[in-house]
Every structure is written in structure tokens, then in C-alpha cells.
């Protein structure tokens, strides 16, 4: 029964999302109508395509829910669908590893530059140093390492020196691959500064 429950749940979610899009989002976030009349010439407005898609999604979701609810018993051998408690645990760990990696990637460079400046270094802002060695690599190398190492740690469920080495080598290879041959390419997060 797990499959049908998830499909019905998905259908309900999509019905609500499609209805909200159709009756709240589209009317408030598109400035032209479904059709537009300008000098007696009728044209298709920007709202036409999203409205048709949202309306179709509403109908399809209802059909999905109804067929899953009434036809579920016939699909005894269907593959297992849906998320269980373990999936949520995995997602939480995945989010921590990726989030930590991205956080370090974005903030390491600017924070280190601020720290050096606060100790009287007067090296300027990160914006001025985003193409200078070693500042341009700080965020990517540290954040990339924690992302790769963190994910390996999640899957292997243990810390290992070989995983750390593999992560360091991978990040260094990617840094060399993108930064050395291409002068115009910016590693994350340098393009945002």
C-alpha cells in the first residue's frame, strides 16, 4: 500500500500547488493576460502558457490521485516508491555535508581577508583580491574538500585518511583543471564578488 499512499499524497500536493499557481501566483505575478488586445489585434499573452500548464497539471494530478486510490490494489508487484525514515536521515546528512561545503566555499575567502585586515594587514577587500593567489583558491579548496570528504564520510560511515587524500587530490585537480589553463574563468565564489 506504500506506493499508492505516496502517489495519492503526491497527487494531493500537486493539486494544491496547481490550484495555488492558477488562482494566486499567475494572476499576481504576470502583468499580461491570457490574451491581449492591442489596436484590435488579438495576441497570446504571457499568462496563456503557464495557465494552460497549471490547469492541465490540476487535471492530471486529480487523475493520478483517483487512479492510484482506486487502482492501487491491482499493482501488487510495483517497485517500492516513496521516502522512508532512513531517506530523511540520509537527506539530513547530505544537506549538512553539501551545506557545510558551500558555506565554507562562499565565506572562507572574505572572512580570512577581513581577519587579516582586522589585524592591521591592510590587504584590501576580497573583491580586489578575488583573482590573486592564494585568496582566489581559499573558498573553493576548503569548501570543495569538505563537500567531497563529507559525502564520502556519509556513505562510508567512517573517517579514513585515504578518503581525505582522495578529496584533497580531487579538489586540487579540479582547481588546476579550471584555473590554470583558463584565465577568464572564475572558481566559485569569485564571480559573485
Amino acid at each position: 500500500m506504500q506506493n499508492e499512499k505516496w502517489t495519492v499524497g503526491l497527487a494531493v500536493f500537486l493539486v494544491i500547488a496547481a490550484a495555488a499557481t492558477l488562482f494566486i501566483w499567475i494572476p499576481n505575478d504576470i502583468e499580461t493576460g491570457v490574451v491581449e488586445t492591442f489596436r484590435r489585434r488579438v495576441t497570446i499573452g504571457d499568462a496563456m502558457a503557464p495557465t494552460m500548464v497549471a490547469a492541465a497539471l490540476l487535471v492530471v494530478s486529480i487523475l493520478m490521485g483517483v487512479t492510484a486510490y482506486f487502482g492501487g490494489r491491482q499493482q501488487k508487484h510495483a517497485a517500492k516508491a516513496g521516502l522512508d525514515k532512513q531517506s530523511f536521515t540520509f537527506l539530513l546528512r547530505l544537506t549538512i555535508a553539501v551545506g557545510l561545503g558551500l558555506g565554507l566555499m562562499v565565506y572562507t575567502g572574505p572572512v580570512i581577508v577581513d581577519i587579516i585586515n582586522s589585524f592591521g594587514g591592510e590587504i584590501g577587500t576580497y573583491r580586489h583580491l578575488k583573482a590573486a593567489f592564494p585568496y582566489k583558491y581559499l573558498g573553493y579548496v576548503l569548501g570543495g574538500f569538505f563537500m567531497v570528504f563529507g559525502l564520502i564520510r556519509v556513505v562510508e560511515n567512517r573517517f579514513s585518511a585515504s578518503a581525505a587524500w582522495a578529496s584533497i587530490i580531487a579538489v586540487l585537480v579540479l582547481t588546476i583543471l579550471y584555473d590554470v589553463p583558463f584565465e577568464n574563468l572564475l572558481l566559485p565564489p569569485n564571480g559573485d564578488h
Binding site: Y140, G144, M147, L151, A166, A170, F182, L187, P188, D192
Partner: peptide, 23 residues
């Protein structure tokens, strides 16, 4: 595979960043 896929993830994200230059 468990060591290759995290590297594929970082590689894909990096590849997208160098093209879009935006977090």
C-alpha cells in the same frame, strides 16, 4: 563509486559555476 560520485558532484557544480558565474 562512493568516492567517485562526490567528486562528480563537485565537478558538475564547478562546471556550472564557471559557465554561469553565480552562486
Amino acid at each position: 563509486k562512493q568516492r567517485l560520485l562526490p567528486i562528480v558532484l563537485l565537478l558538475t557544480l564547478t562546471a556550472i559555476y564557471v559557465q554561469q558565474t553565480s552562486m
